[in-house]
Structure formats: structure tokens, C-alpha cells
Design a protein around this nucleic acid. Sequence first.
DNA 1: ATCACTTAAAGTCATTTTGACTTTAACTAG
DNA 2: CTAGTTAAAGTCAAAATGACTTTAAGTGAT
Lengths: 247, 247
Amino acid sequence: MAPAPFPVAVGGANVAERAQLPPSLAISTVIFALKPAPDGRPTLWVPLVRRVREPYRGSWALPGGPLTASESLEDAARRNLAETTGLDPAYLEQLYAFGGLRRANRPDIGSQRVVSIVYWALVRAHETEFGGELGEERDNVAWHPAEPSHGGPAELAFDHREIVDYALWRLRNKIEYAQVAYHVLGEMFTLAQLREVHEAVLGRSLDPANFRRQLKGTADLEATEHYLEGGRHRPPRLYRYTGPRGL
Amino acid sequence: MAPAPFPVAVGGANVAERAQLPPSLAISTVIFALKPAPDGRPTLWVPLVRRVREPYRGSWALPGGPLTASESLEDAARRNLAETTGLDPAYLEQLYAFGGLRRANRPDIGSQRVVSIVYWALVRAHETEFGGELGEERDNVAWHPAEPSHGGPAELAFDHREIVDYALWRLRNKIEYAQVAYHVLGEMFTLAQLREVHEAVLGRSLDPANFRRQLKGTADLEATEHYLEGGRHRPPRLYRYTGPRGL
DNA sequence: ATCACTTAAAGTCATTTTGACTTTAACTAG
DNA sequence: CTAGTTAAAGTCAAAATGACTTTAAGTGAT
């Protein structure tokens, strides 16, 4: 039997039977990218997929799909993300497993239980192009500001608005103990670029001089002998992240 | 059909069929309690259950079991914990979903896939009594030091040793932004008791005066008009936690 | 009742860290 | 050569931290 399409219940079974089915497992991803908001300032955006079936037909939802028997959780997250958006982030991390009973528990689909394991990532600007193999589905994938206050959709399918809000909260706490921010940048970056990431995530501006001083205390940053030229000003030195990469 | 017993594969299906089964979902719990280690100093202990079936028959494992269709993830964690140990922690939090392919992937059980969602908690001393309804299973439940360096078992069933280590790591990071520690104490507690919890979790001693000063900066602590009497010294004031309780 | 003993709670002080700001350096565009 | 721009380093007062001292308030023994 093919896996049930996410996040709709298994077809065929009636409501009473569905209530007895074991919970099905799905994987979703929240991908954050740094793009200029409508007001011009760089903010966090997420890719969303428009639903073409009930429930929530026409609403925007997080990219996701089922977990198959032969792949790890992270592999499943990557595969679903590639299939729905063509994206391929360098860094993925598990966010949370959502399995409350009210999820997808609507009259029209019965009480089939769906547990979603959600992964999240921060991607670089050049990784935000949707894959070219999507065909006609291309129109149903788009980047949106992560927060309604920056122009993002106030309502998403299922409980996906709450999931994005939770991911934002985690991101803002996690950046305090760093590391996450580096994955949004390339191999080498200037301190100003790194500061821009921190400012977008935290939602406030940081003093350049103090930011520089504090990062010097962190041993995970290494100065290279390269400089970024081309600006109409003194060229900034490029740095490299030397800390841990995965969990 | 009854849910599959945790964490053994569904009986009846042969190995080839098992590989095609959708992943099954199980819930486990890591319960930390503060007890004196063999050396007398208070350290972290966890309740473990001895396995009575293959695989890992005779090894110690985390309490856990299957997720049924009609309960939330946290409810399932509570129910499984009560059934296997009789424990009922006041506070439970989700730790992580483990679903790597090597989990339980042994020749004798085929490649049935088990995804475990792990919850964790810190409990008070008076909550460490195992329930009285366990009967003959009582001998197969026991508290063990969480760390091998304090006398705990170096090897556990499945990947449970890694899970406990990860929970310890999360605990030591999380206590920095507090809150977790309060759940190990009662409604009211002295600053010395709170300091003992922090010391056990962090594994080092803290200066009483500085600890007091730093907590006064935290608004989540409220001094009561009660004092703990009975010691052969000046009675300490009792405090109350006023911060958030759940997620 | 007095005294030695113990821990609570507050205070002291030098050092470190932080936040706001200033100065100097090094490039580009005209 | 000059004005404009940002990089990078430096200054300084305020706040936080770590090690330590002093005083308070109970207990049990004499």
C-alpha cells in the first residue's frame, strides 16, 4: 500500500474505522531565508505550498509529506522538501513533534491521527530558488514573510501558523548560543553580513563595534586573509566559521 | 488490531513484509530525580525497566510504550510511564524524536521501523516511589544513576544510553535559562534547596551568596512569609516560583 | 542563661563584561 | 586630491560577576 498523502487521512476507511487506525507519521519543514521585507529591511521568509485538496484547499501550508520505511527522519524531511519546493538546505535540524488531538481533527475527515515531526533550517540567499522540476505545481509554491507583522499570511492550513511561530521563538532563543546563524551564510562572510543575520533574527539593530568585540571572544570564528572588495569603502575582512556543524 | 508492543516489531509479518510496514510510533520517557549517589553527593537518577523479551532481554531500558489513537503525545507519555513504573511527574516536556534507521534494526527482528518520541521530566523526591499496582513486575523497575561516572549502567537497551546522554546535555543547557529546576522542588523551597538542584544538574558547587544575588534579579521568584524551622541553625526563608509552567 | 556551633542573609571589593560612543584606517567616486 | 563611506580599533562609565567578609538568628550542650 502506498503511504497516505500528507496530511489527509487514509482514503477508503470510514470514520469509525479511521479512529482505530494507528497514528500516521508525516514530516514538515520550516525553512527560513533572509530576504528584504516589503519595507526594504531584511527579514525572515518561509516557503509555503498552496493546498490543492481538502481540507484547507487553497490555504498555504508548510512543505511536507509522509515518512517512508527506508529513510531516516532527516532524509525524509529533505526528500519531501525537494519534492514540494525543489529546495536543498545545507543544514536541517529537528524542531518538534506535533501530535495534539485537534490536529486535522475536522468533521469532514474524521479523527485520523497525524503526528508531524517538524524540521527547520536557515538557508542562504542563493539557496532560495525553487527547483526547476516542479512543472505546473510551480505556481503553488511561494516565499512569504514568516511573521504577519511583516506581511506574512495570518492564517495557514492546519496548525501551521503555530508551528511557524514556535520555530521563530526557538530561533530567537537559539541564536543566543549561536551556530545557527552561520548556516545562513556562505563559506566566508564579513562581520557586517553576520551582524545582518543576527539583526534580522532578533528584530533589532546591534552596535557594530560591540558586535565585533563579542565575536572575538568566541573561538569558533577565524579571520581569513581575504577581503571583500568592490564596495565604495574600506574593504572588510572575510571570516570563516570553525565550530561544530551538526547536532 | 491492538497496537504493537514497544519496541518489538509487529508479530506475524515476515521480514520482507515488515520492511514495507509504515513506521510505528512509540513514546519513551527520561525521568530525572535527585538522589544521593553511592558517594553521598546528590546526583541525577533515572528509572529504568528491565526487558523481559528479545531483543535486549535482561537489559535496562527507558520506560515507554506505544501511542494509541485517542491520546495526545504527552498523555501517551504519562500513561506509559504510569503503566511501567507507577510514576506520575508534575511536569513533562518533549525532548526529541528519534528515528534513525539503525534503531532496533537487528537481524532477529528485521527492519521494522520504530520512531520514538521521547519526553523528559525532573521530579521531586516524594514522587520517586514506584506505583503499588505493579505486582510481579515490581522487581523489573529500579532507579539508576543517570551517568556511568556516578555508578549508572554503561549500556542500555537499543540506543537508550545515547538518549539519556542527550537528555543530560539538554538539561545542563536548559537550566541556564532556568525554569526546569523549579519543577523538582515543591510549592515552597529554600534557596539552599534550589541551589542544591542547580549544583546536581551542573555538577559543580556554586557560591551561596552569589547564587542568592543572581536569583533576586530574576522576577520569577517570590519570597513568602514562611520559614523552614527545625534545623540547628537560623531558619531559612521559603520562596515560591511565580514563572510560567508549561511550554 | 550563656556559649559554641551552624547556616542564613547581607555587604564589600576587585575584576570582567556590557553598552554607548569616538577615533583612526582604508577604500571608491568624482 | 577631496568628499563620502564603512571597517576596525579604542575609550569610558555602568552593570554584572566571582571571591570573600560580616552580621543575624536559630540549635543543642554546658
